[in-house]
Design a protein around this nucleic acid. Structure first.
Lengths: 369, 369
DNA sequence: TTGTAAGCGTTATCAG
DNA sequence: CTGATAACGCTTACAA
């Protein structure tokens, strides 16, 4: 009795002092004249599975609604040891490659009952690790790491110490599942397309050398050259950023070469836009005197003039696939461990799920002059 | 004694059963041979403010590190009544207007010690409200709502019942602070630019009629017309989506009109890209026979040929400003209420912070033929 | 069918 | 200077 009164007074006074009134399960219980357990049962997701008088349930539901009660997910999470939160780490959401992917992630996460917390690393390993630390402290159920130095000695230890599942997008050195596109093959394919058109001097534009994506696409470009017995000329590979400016600069430099290339494969569509702009400014007709290709196939690619030949990369699917992979790795019940069964269906633990890319031939590529 | 042993056994067995070993403050306490209170103090952020033997602190810190202990933010949040999480609601992160804004939000949130959870509504009020519900249940400290039916009877009640601060981006009918750009004025300015160039028949392309942003930009367009005694011709206003396709379709329709316009203001840059594409395909020179303007000034605008005349909208700043506004509204201590003082410095409760836009004249606009 | 009470992992308030 | 212990809000055996 006395205890009850005290508690009530505590809550009441705090609420009064702070000027607002977040209602808890106990408030509902008191108002409805039942115990908190009963309220919990009435409001539980699988309420039906409990044996209780329909009348009681109805009454509790009504009171709860009347009071505007919202169960505290924090308390629940603390108890159940799962937060229904996924960490999503990307280099930079304002890089057009990622929004589609994040959308894919959020869509399946949301459908599966998860929220996502978004982190931007700017490809700085230090930031990556700081975010991982934060995410672990907040006990997210899983983390999805996309691009940006995923290799850099990520402290996987802390992740699985706290039972945090991980899925990586892209190539990496980590011991965990991943979703990838074969950028090497894609780079090779788009370059081969140019070679088939008759090009012999082909340049490569844009992208930071530290990026694995960039490295792979260049590697593919290089392989295509080699496969067709064409020389790999370093002066034709212009690294930079993933933006228009890099493309612009690269193209200007390229056209000024004593022996300029007849085609340039860009590391992504933004870079290609820059290339196209520079070529336009230099009065170089595309594809007449120079063929140009992009990578990713973002929305505006087919609206450029000339329409951009590019490699379609299914960013949305990359995201949704990765999210599904992650969600599926998270044990359902509150304290499952590594029970053998739930890892079923040929889904390998550390497997790389490869998604297809596709060369989309449009108008910016054609035979050399 | 007995109780202690029991507890220990419980933890141990659970850990064993589940196969992993998330370490708690009690584990650290036991390992270090001190009480949990001491551990908590040693690890507290303002540890220095506590009176304790340096030796003890050092020892605790070491043990903690050795065990790989990561404090559980959930427990802390439950106790302190604040999660350090911000909800961010946008129509669609893959719409290029939002990534920059979200980046701005995340940057200041992160710096202020907040994480952000991202939600996409696709402008569906139902989804908006479902997300709000979720966010409140997870007890986020604040919510940032950008665009997309922010008007639609948002249940503000539940928000401040659970003491969740809100900031809105864009015009709205809610009783809370907001960050806005004056889209009406901007629409008027860009249209005026065209009029000053000598245009008399000016069209408007793209954007869903349900969008407030669209409505405002059209309204500005209309006002400019009226101010200059030009007729507002409904057949010249082609609604659609915010994408390239809408621009393309609108432009084709416009050029086929018996008395086609000599200029078209697009609701955003993506639409403008579509317009440009259509005009190119129709053989209509820009700006020779048709001037085109965009809105937002996204990264590629200055790389289009002709370079796009547009209205620069500071999306990053919109995000960072809104986030700062929100963070500043969240009480620092754990259970502050609406104490009068901390609302100081002329920062009005429901004020609209207006951010400037700027007409950027480039090459896609010029005098009519 | 419903209630009691033991935690989940912290921090803060008292004592010692 | 350090240690018990009571919350925070919820779920779930176990009792009644």
């Amino acid at each position: 009795m006395v205890t009850g009164e005290q508690k009530k007074r505590t809550r009441a006074s705090r609420a009064q002092a702070s000027g607002h009134k977040t209602v808890s399960i106990r408030d509902v219980a008191e108002a409805a004249g039942v115990s908190v357990a009963t309220v919990s049962r009435a409001l539980s997701a699988d309420s039906e599975s409990f044996q209780m008088r329909a009348e009681t349930r109805r009454h509790v539901l009504e009171t709860s609604a009347a009071l505007g009660y919202r169960p505290n997910d924090l308390a629940r999470a603390l108890l159940q040891q799962r937060t229904s939160v996924l960490g999503v780490i990307v280099p930079d959401i304002s890089n057009p490659y990622y929004p589609g992917m994040v959308r894919g992630i959020e869509d399946v996460a949301s459908l599966a009952g998860y929220r996502i917390v978004l982190c931007n690393t700017d490809r700085e390993p230090e930031r990556l690790n700081r975010y991982l630390e934060t995410l672990v402290k907040s006990r997210v159920d899983g983390v999805l790491i996309a691009g940006g130095a995923a290799d850099t000695a990520i402290d996987v230890g802390i992740l699985d110490q706290y039972n945090t599942k991980v899925v990586v997008v892209g190539r990496h050195g980590m011991h965990c599942p991943s979703v990838q596109v074969d950028n090497v093959a894609a780079g090779e394919a788009i370059t081969a397309h140019l070679i088939a058109l008759g090009h012999r001097r082909i340049a490569f534009a844009g992208g930071p050398e530290s990026s694995r994506t960039m490295q792979d696409r260049v590697e593919g470009y290089r392989r295509a050259l080699t496969a067709h017995r064409l020389a790999y000329d370093e002066s034709l590979v212009r690294a930079g950023e993933f933006d228009e400016d890099s493309g612009y600069g690269a193209a200007r430099a390229l056209t000024r070469l004593p022996d300029p290339p007849t085609a340039v494969v860009s590391v992504n569509d933004r870079v290609a836009v820059g290339v196209l702009a520079a070529l336009h400014d230099e009065g170089v007709p595309v594809p007449g005197r120079m063929s140009v290709t992009g990578f990713d196939d973002v929305s505006f690619s087919s609206f450029l003039r000339p329409k951009l030949t590019t490699v379609a990369v299914p960013t949305y699917e990359i995201g949704s696939t990765a999210a599904r992979l992650l969600v599926d790795r998270i044990p359902a019940g509150r304290s499952e461990g590594a029970s053998e069964e739930d890892e079923g269906a040929g889904e390998s633990r550390d497997g790389a799920t490869m998604l297809p890319t596709k060369v989309v031939v449009r108008d910016s590529s054609g035979p050399p002059a």
